[in-house]
Design a protein around this nucleic acid. Structure first.
Length: 509
RNA sequence: GGGGCUGUAGCUCAGACGGUAGAGCAACGGACUUUUAAUCCGUAGGUCUCGGGUUCGAGUCCCGACAGCCUCACCA
């Protein structure tokens, strides 16, 4: 195509790409010709289809009266709106299945019943169009709950062909890229994302009930601290400085503890510039909650409560399906120490560095020049974590891999930290928070052995240290990966299925 | 970034050995006032992801690129 006469975008938009689109545009034209706006407008008075379906008990049988005509059904008058999912034409009658976000219902459109004009309009219906319907709620002779239409309203034309009506969209790439189609046409997807909203809502409700306040911290950080992850880098032009998208919520929430917010949380997006996998998306949703005068046991109780109430909010029992398995979330969840589990699953004495080092090198894990606890943790991650079907709280981590955690009073080698594992997946992470500014500064400045700086949690944040010097109350802190929680509560094995718009490379034209 | 697999009509999928591309749904025309993945008859629809190569001939074989899925690494 030459570019001598650049066409306007509207002209381009009206050039059909296929005979399928041409057919739909022809119907669009016919609708407009009838004096009807094919893009619709305000449509009041319709009820959710689920609500309409619930009125089936109002359908009654009435006699013909004169004793000769057959008994017939009478039902309530209803108005619905939705997308056309299925269309069955049978001469001068047609059956239309419409769907809204609460459900699906069949509509019967008869030429004699709706009149000439409506019938003409109905000839312009395509799968995917959005329509409104007035009629009587009754049953067909096969018993299907049906709106017997007496008036039709055109609300929006669909120019594109919808997915195959039986198989729907099967390609996961298309489903995730075009979430609108997935929501509109794939069974259960709408329900799953509405369930995600219920879960998040429940978490906020539980925290409010417990007296926590929600805050909003900065997402642009000068120092990307609070976790060990590579950040996304951006640039502020006016200040001419690089900034990082936050990788954790931790350090600002702790500043608020210093300020006197005794129960505080943030539920929001964090960003990590790491690999993408069925359990990782570059941006994901994190809850972090901090409670002054609590500790990691306080946080364990809170974690259980948040999860159990979230499950109840979705209307499910505490035993949830997960692929071929069932996860039992009945509290209390199992609680075992890191060392116990280490011994149990590796057969190695967790307090003997020599045996640990031997085990590691015999399994191909690098040992030279690395801190014994780093080696130990690598073994834990590779040989123990995958076996933790859970839910199980793993308690008391090696102190040297926990730079933000208070050391155990009885044993300074141990940090008061737990992680909650379910199906081998880390779901939550909590500490008795370290509030000793001198130790915190030392841990920040001491380069963790065996770890390059960019991979270390130990990034020096001077203002944070200064805050601690002003006095942070002893506290428990908790982090929960919300996307993973939603995965577990919706039986989804891939994080992309619970994120509305997961990251993809752009499509090439 | 490494490894394995995948990419064919708008969608869901077939295409042994290399021989001029097939079905269902969707679309178009026709029949049908109780269907429900409606059915029946007919018609149309393709740069086989892209670019090279081998060959008389490539959807098919080889190389490369792009995209996706799985997996490993990094990470939660």
């Amino acid at each position: 195509m030459n570019q001598d006469h650049p066409s306007s975008s509207s002209e381009q938009g009206q050039r059909p790409k296929s005979h399928l689109e041409a057919a739909r545009r022809e119907k669009l034209r016919r609708i407009a010709e009838m004096g009807i706006d094919p893009w619709g407008g305000r449509f009041d008075g319709h009820r959710p289809i689920r609500e309409i379906r619930a009125r089936e008990n109002e359908i009654v049988v009435v006699d013909g009266g004169d004793g000769r005509s057959a008994p017939e059904l009478r039902g309530p008058r209803v108005r619905a709106a939705g997308r056309i999912m299925l269309l069955r034409r049978a001469g001068k009658i047609m059956f239309i299945d419409i769907r809204d976000w609460t459900g699906k219902i069949q509509v019967l459109v008869g030429k004699a019943q709706v009149g000439e004009r409506n019938w003409e309009l109905a000839q312009c219906f395509d799968l995917g169009d959005i329509i409104g319907v007035d009629g009587e709620l009754k049953r067909t002779k096969t018993g299907e709950l049906t709106i017997f239409a007496d008036n039709l309203h055109f609300l929006t034309k669909s120019i594109e062909t919808p997915p195959e009506k039986w198989h729907g969209l099967a390609d996961p790439e298309l489903r995730n890229r075009m979430r609108y189609l997935d929501l509109a046409y794939t069974e259960g997807v709408m329900e799953r994302f509405l369930r995600r909203t219920q879960i998040v809502h429940s978490i906020r409700a539980t925290l409010a009930e417990e007296g926590f306040v929600e805050v909003e911290g900065p997402t642009l950080h000068v120092i990307a601290g609070g976790a060990a992850a590579r950040p996304f880098v951006t640039h502020h032009n006016a200040l001419d400085m690089d900034l990082y998208l936050r990788i954790a919520l931790e350090l600002h929430l702790k500043r608020l503890l210093v300020g006197g917010m005794e129960k505080v949380y943030e539920l929001g997006r964090v960003y990590r510039n790491e690999g993408i996998s069925p359990r990782h998306n570059p941006e994901f949703t994190m809850l972090e909650a901090y409670q002054a005068y609590g500790d990691y046991h306080t946080m364990m109780d809170l974690t259980e409560k948040l999860i159990v109430q979230a499950i109840r909010a979705t209307g499910q029992p505490l035993q949830l399906p997960w692929g071929e398995n069932v996860i039992d979330f009945t509290p209390p969840f199992a609680r075992k120490t890191y060392d116990e589990l280490f011994a149990e699953h590796t057969g190695v004495n967790p307090t003997d560095p020599a045996s640990i080092s031997y085990f590691a090198s015999s399994r191909g894990i690098e040992v030279v020049g690395r801190h014994p606890d780093v080696i130990k943790n690598e073994i834990f991650e590779e040989f123990v974590q995958p076996k933790l079907t859970g839910p199980i709280f793993v308690l008391d981590y090696p102190a040297s891999i926990c730079p933000l955690t208070k050391r155990s009073r009885n044993n300074p080698q141990i940090a008061e930290r737990f992680e909650l594992f379910v199906q081998g997946m880390e779901l939550a992470n909590a500490y008795t928070e370290l509030n000793d500014p001198d130790l915190q500064e030392e841990l920040f400045s001491r380069q963790l052995e065996g770890l390059p700086e960019e991979e270390s949690m130990a990034r020096m944040d001077r203002d944070f240290i200064r805050a601690l010097r002003h006095g942070m109350p002893p506290a428990g802190g908790l982090g929960i990966g919300i996307d993973r929680l939603v995965m577990l509560l919706t039986n989804c094995q891939s994080i992309r299925e619970v994120i509305l718009f997961p990251l993809y490379r752009p499509e090439v034209d």
